[in-house]
C-alpha cells in the first residue's frame, strides 16, 4: 500500500517513520581525549581511543563504548557536541546517555540552516539563573502561548554514577498545540543540526565547579535525536539523492529536499503542507497535453475561488489559451478529434483568392468568403455565379 495515497489513488498526508536521526552521523566534539595520549586514552590506538563517533555508532566494536573529553582542569569547562542531521528533521526528542556523572548544567541548541545560526531548545541546570540567566521551569509547565526554550532541572546521577540528559520537544511547548496545524510548533521542532553544550561538570559538594581545581572529563555513550525526516506531509520516506545527500522521496507533485515546493508543471495552486484532513497536493496545470510548462497566477487563482491559478506556457500543436483549450488564429477545432489530440487544431486553409481573409471561424472552420464565393475554404463559386478573371471579384453573377 502507498502511504501517500488511499485505495482510490487520492492523495493523503504521509510522514516518514520515527528514527534516530543521529545514528551513523558524524559528531563533532570540541574536546576529545587521547591527543596527546595518556595512560587511559590514546586516540591512535583503537583499543584505548574514545572518539566522538562512538556517540552515534550502532556499537558492537571491540574497543571502548564511550566518548570522553580531555581532562578539564579549569574554566572554561564547556565542551560542545554537534551532530549534523544532513537535512531538516522534525525532532521529537534528544537524549544523551552519560558514562560518568552527568553535567551540572547543559544547553541544547538547534540549527535550521545547517549550522550557520543556532537557537536554544532547552537548558538543564540546578542553578538556572546563575548559569543561564533564566528562571527554572515552573512545575505547571510552559506558561507562554508558544513553544520556548526553558530551563529544566539538571539530569540526575544514577546509582551507578551515570546519567541521562533527555529532552522532549513537548517539554518546551504548551499543551494544546498541534503539529499539523501550528506553523509555530512546526518551526520549533525543525532542525538540521543538534548541538549539546556541556557547560559545567558536576563537582561533589560544590555548585560552582568552574572553581573546582579537580580535573574532570565528560564521558557519554549515546546521542540520540529522535525525529522524522521533514517532508511536510508529502513523503513517507527519505533516501540519499544522487550526491549522497538525504532527501525526501516526494509525492503529491512536490519536490525539494523537504518537498517544500511544487514541481515545475504542478503549479495550478500554491504549495501547502499536508494536514491530516487535506493532502494539499500540488496539482498539474490543465494544458490538454499541449504544454510542458506553466506558471501560477495568484489573481486568476483568487478569481477562480481558490481552485485554479495555472497558466499554460508555450502551447503547442497550434493551440492557445490559458489551458491550451482553443486553436490559435488561422486554425480551427476539428470536432472529430479530442481536444488533447495533437491534430485537434486544423489549419483554416482559406483560399488565397476566394476568401476575404486567412482567419476562419475557430469552431466551424468557415473562412470569410468574398461575394459569390462559397465552400468551407471559399474555393468555389456559389450557385448562380461563375468564375471571373478578376482576383478581386473571383465569382460574378451569371447574366
Amino acid at each position: 500500500p502507498d502511504p501517500c495515497h488511499d485505495e482510490g489513488g487520492a492523495p493523503r498526508a504521509c510522514v516518514p517513520g520515527l528514527v534516530n536521526a543521529a545514528l551513523g552521523r558524524e559528531v563533532l566534539a570540541s574536546s576529545t581525549c587521547g591527543r596527546p595520549a595518556t595512560r587511559a586514552c590514546d586516540a591512535s590506538d583503537p583499543r584505548r581511543a574514545h572518539p566522538a563517533a562512538l556517540l552515534t555508532s550502532a556499537g558492537g566494536g571491540a574497543g571502548p563504548l564511550c566518548w570522553r573529553s580531555d581532562s578539564l582542569a579549569r574554566a572554561p569547562l564547556n565542551v560542545t557536541l554537534t551532530v549534523a542531521l544532513g537535512k531538516a528533521f522534525e525532532v521529537v526528542f534528544v537524549s544523551l546517555r552519560f558514562c560518568s556523572a552527568p553535567p551540572a548544567s547543559a544547553a541544547l541548541l538547534k540549527s535550521q540552516d545547517h549550522g550557520r545560526s543556532w537557537a536554544p531548545l532547552g537548558f538543564f541546570s540546578s542553578h538556572c539563573r546563575l548559569d543561564y540567566g533564566r528562571p527554572p521551569v515552573p512545575a505547571t509547565g510552559p506558561a507562554g502561548p508558544g513553544p520556548e526554550a526553558l530551563c529544566f532541572p539538571a539530569p540526575q546521577a544514577q546509582p551507578d554514577g551515570s546519567g541521562l540528559l533527555a529532552f522532549s520537544v513537548q517539554d518546551g511547548s504548551p499543551p494544546g498545540l498541534d503539529l499539523a496545524s501550528s506553523p509555530v510548533l512546526q518551526d520549533w521542532v525543525t532542525a538540521t543540526d543538534i548541538r549539546v553544550v556541556l557547560t559545567r561538570p558536576t563537582a561533589p559538594g560544590d555548585a560552582r565547579a568552574s572553581e573546582a581545581a579537580v580535573p574532570y572529563s565528560y564521558s557519554a555513550a549515546e546521542l540520540q535525536v529522535g525525529g522524522r525526516c521533514k517532508c511536510n506531509g508529502h513523503a513517507s520516506r527519505c533516501l540519499p539523492d544522487t550526491q549522497g545527500r538525504l532527501a525526501c522521496d516526494c509525492r503529491h507533485g512536490t519536490e525539494g529536499p523537504d518537498c517544500g515546493r511544487c514541481k515545475p508543471f504542478y503549479c495550478d495552486r500554491p504549495w501547502q503542507r499536508a494536514t491530516a484532513r487535506e493532502a494539499h497536493a500540488c496539482l498539474a496545470c490543465s494544458c490538454n497535453g499541449h504544454a510542458r510548462r506553466c506558471r501560477f497566477n495568484m489573481e486568476l487563482y483568487r478569481l477562480s475561488g481558490r481552485r485554479s491559478g495555472g497558466v499554460c506556457l508555450n502551447c503547442r500543436h497550434n493551440t492557445a489559451g490559458r489551458h491550451c483549450h482553443y486553436c490559435r488564429e488561422g486554425f480551427y477545432r476539428d470536432a472529430g478529434r479530442a481536444l488533447s489530440d495533437r491534430r485537434a487544431c486544423r489549419a483554416c486553409d482559406c483560399h488565397p483568392v476566394g476568401a476575404a481573409g486567412k482567419t476562419c471561424n475557430q469552431t466551424t472552420g468557415q473562412c470569410p468568403c468574398k461575394d459569390g464565393v462559397t465552400g468551407l475554404t471559399c474555393n468555389r463559386c456559389a450557385p448562380g455565379f461563375q468564375q471571373s478573371r478578376s482576383p478581386v471579384a473571383p465569382c460574378v453573377k451569371i447574366p
Binding site: 483560399h351 483568392v353 462559397t374 474555393n379 450557385p383 482576383p391 465569382c395
Partner: peptide
C-alpha cells in the same frame, strides 16, 4: 449542384500583381 473549384490559371493578375499569392 457542386461548382468546380476556382481555377487559379484563369485569373488575370495584370492589375493586381501585389495581391498575387505565392504558389
Amino acid at each position: 449542384e457542386v461548382m468546380p473549384t476556382l481555377d487559379m490559371a484563369l485569373f488575370d493578375w495584370t492589375d493586381y500583381e501585389d495581391l498575387k499569392p505565392e504558389v
